[in-house]
């Protein structure tokens, strides 16, 4: 809740707005190469994924290892609605978010009472299950062949599929969602979520409905991941299960960790870093993956709280692993609450 009083609050948002909606498009237009647009759009989509992960892992402290699967659910929802029902982006955008949120809600029902590491393992399993469905339910998802999404970005029939228009659409949706996530995480609601991350038993004793709030954070973050999936599907025009596999979940997690758990600006910077760095290092060939690994390793070693984080990633993991062996008061149900 604390804000620096030295400069007016609107300065930073205006600067970021100018950068995203004026400076960057101008630069992109001056180069006018499809590759740069592609990178910018990809970076924006991962900013949204990282921001949505920030809500569930950074703020609510739930170690989520299957986030990419909800991104995939959103993308497949968009692709299938387009190819089977002929719906355009205007409709698939909200519907992708809602379907991803619904799937998240349903899988959260049985898993949300799991504590700590058991929850992390459950999300891992859920992510794998959803991935395998995309891969193996060939008649519905076309399996490994993927789906060609026949419609580009549009708004109420008005095509937005030009390079610059696509960039602006993606940027507008991402900025809107990130602002929404910012409001969720920097509010009293966000504080209640943080208290669960810090000490969920204690939060419980303060009247915080921990299970319900965890469900909400998980479902909301899936909603935003689904929205990102819809953007991705319409932007690239082709999706396949490989885009949503486990390593993507880990990539998103890494963005949040490098940026700093609990910090939304951190999540955004982490996403930019881990998307732009590998692209910038393309000249190094296969060494670039080692470089990315080094960045993550060094950030955990020397910046335990990430660039801007509230909590150290190691502390969160230690807390989660430790809880698995901690004895509960009533002796029953270790790992289950």
């Amino acid at each position: 809740m604390s804000a620096s009083k030295s400069r007016p609050q609107w300065v930073l948002p205006v600067l970021i707005g100018l950068l995203v909606f004026a400076a960057l498009p101008a630069v992109l237009a001056s180069f006018d190469r499809g590759y740069f647009y592609q990178i910018a759009n990809l970076a924006l989509i991962f900013v949204l994924l990282s921001a949505s992960m920030h809500l569930v892992t950074g703020v609510a402290g739930l170690l989520h290892l299957g986030h990419a699967a909800f991104y995939g659910v959103g993308a497949y929802t968009a692709a299938l609605l387009t190819t089977k029902l002929g719906l355009g982006f205007t409709w698939t955008l909200p519907l992708s978010g809602l379907v991803a949120a619904l799937v998240a809600f349903l899988v959260a029902l049985p898993t949300m009472r799991l504590v700590s590491i058991y929850f992390a393992v459950a999300t891992l399993a859920i992510g794998q299950m959803l991935y395998l469905v995309m891969l193996n339910w060939v008649e519905f998802t076309k399996g490994p062949n993927g789906i060609i999404v026949t419609k580009g970005l549009e708004l109420f029939g008005f095509s937005l599929s030009g390079r610059l228009a696509t960039y602006y659409t993606v940027a507008a949706v991402v900025v809107l969602c990130v602002v929404a996530i910012g409001r969720l995480s920097h509010s009293y609601y966000g504080n209640a979520l943080r208290s669960i991350r810090e000490d969920d038993q204690c939060a419980d004793a303060m009247g915080v409905r921990t299970v319900r709030l965890k469900m909400e954070a998980f479902t909301l973050s899936a909603f935003f991941a689904g929205v990102a999936g819809s953007l991705w599907a319409h932007m690239t025009g082709y999706i396949s299960p490989g885009d949503f596999k486990f390593s993507e979940s880990i990539l998103i997690l890494a963005m949040v960790v490098v940026g700093g758990l609990g910090s939304l600006p951190g999540a955004v910077i982490g996403a930019l870093l881990l998307i732009l760095l590998p692209e910038g290092l393309r000249g190094l060939g296969d060494f670039r993956n080692i470089m990315v690994g080094m960045v993550m390793f060094l950030s955990i070693l020397f910046l335990p709280k990430g660039l801007l984080g509230e909590v150290s990633a190691l502390r969160l993991v230690r807390q989660q692993l430790g809880a698995a062996w901690r004895r509960t008061d009533n002796g029953i149900g270790i790992g289950w609450r």
Binding site: M1, Y188, E198, M206
Partner: peptide, 20 residues
């Protein structure tokens, strides 16, 4: 709650009983 400000700590008690 160690990684939260003093204000945010106390606000949890308030938001717990006045859910937002």
């Amino acid at each position: 709650f160690p990684n939260m400000s003093v204000f945010d700590n106390v606000s949890v008690g308030a938001v717990g009983t006045l859910p937002q």
